[in-house]
Simulated scan of single mutants.
Amino acid sequence: WFSRKVPVYKPGRGPSARTESVGTLTLDFPASTTVRSQGVSLYIPQPAINATVEEDILLSVDYSCHGIPTIEWKYTSSWGVQKIVEWKPGTQANISQSHKDRVCTFDNGSIQLFSVGVRDSGSYIITVTERLGSSQFGTIVLHVSEILYEDLHFVAVFLAFLVAVAALLISLMWVCNKCAYKFQRKRRHKLKESTTEEIELQEVEC
Rank of each mutant, 00 (worst) to 15 (best):
C179L: 00
E54R: 11
D62T: 14
W87K: 11
S98T: 11
L168S: 01
S64R: 10
K186H: 00
A180E: 03
N50G: 15
T19Y: 01
F158S: 13
A164V: 02
V61K: 14
L42G: 03
Y63R: 09
M173Y: 01
T52L: 10
I125F: 06
K186R: 11
Y9I: 10
E205M: 14
I84V: 05
Y75S: 02
I126N: 05
R119L: 12
S145Q: 14
N177A: 03
D101N: 10
T26H: 08
L113M: 11
G138R: 08
T127N: 08
P69T: 01
K190V: 03
A31Q: 14
W79C: 05
K100D: 12
A167M: 13
R4P: 03
A160Y: 08
T195Y: 14
E146T: 06
S77M: 13
S3H: 13
K186G: 00
T195I: 11
L42S: 03
T127A: 09
P47L: 10
L25C: 03
K100P: 12
I111F: 10
G67T: 09
A51L: 10
V175C: 00
P89S: 12
S134C: 05
Y43V: 03
A156C: 14
Y9F: 09
L132Q: 12
A93D: 11
L58K: 14
M173C: 00
H99V: 15
A156K: 10
L152S: 02
A48C: 09
V6I: 13
S21H: 02
K190R: 07
R188W: 01
Y43C: 02
K190P: 01
I125S: 08
E203W: 14
K100Q: 14
I44L: 15
K178S: 00
V103M: 15
V141Q: 07
V116R: 02
P69K: 01
P30C: 12
A164H: 04
W73E: 07
Y9Q: 15
G122A: 04
A180S: 13
I71S: 05
D120G: 00
H189S: 04
V163G: 05
G14E: 02
K88M: 11
A164N: 10
Y63C: 09
I68T: 04
Q92R: 07
S110L: 03
C65T: 08
V165H: 02
A166F: 02
W73R: 06
F183Y: 08
I68E: 11
T34H: 07
C104T: 09
F106V: 05
I68Y: 05
S60K: 13
Y75W: 15
F114V: 00
S41M: 12
N177G: 03
F183R: 02
G138I: 04
H66S: 09
S3L: 06
G67H: 04
S21C: 03
S41A: 12
P69Y: 02
K83C: 06
I84M: 14
A167W: 04
S123Q: 11
G80A: 08
P15E: 15
L201M: 10
T52A: 11
G109T: 02
S37Y: 14
C65I: 02
I49F: 10
L27Q: 08
T52P: 04
V165N: 01
F29I: 09
W79D: 15
S110Q: 05
H143R: 13
I199G: 03
I111T: 08
V175M: 00
R13T: 13
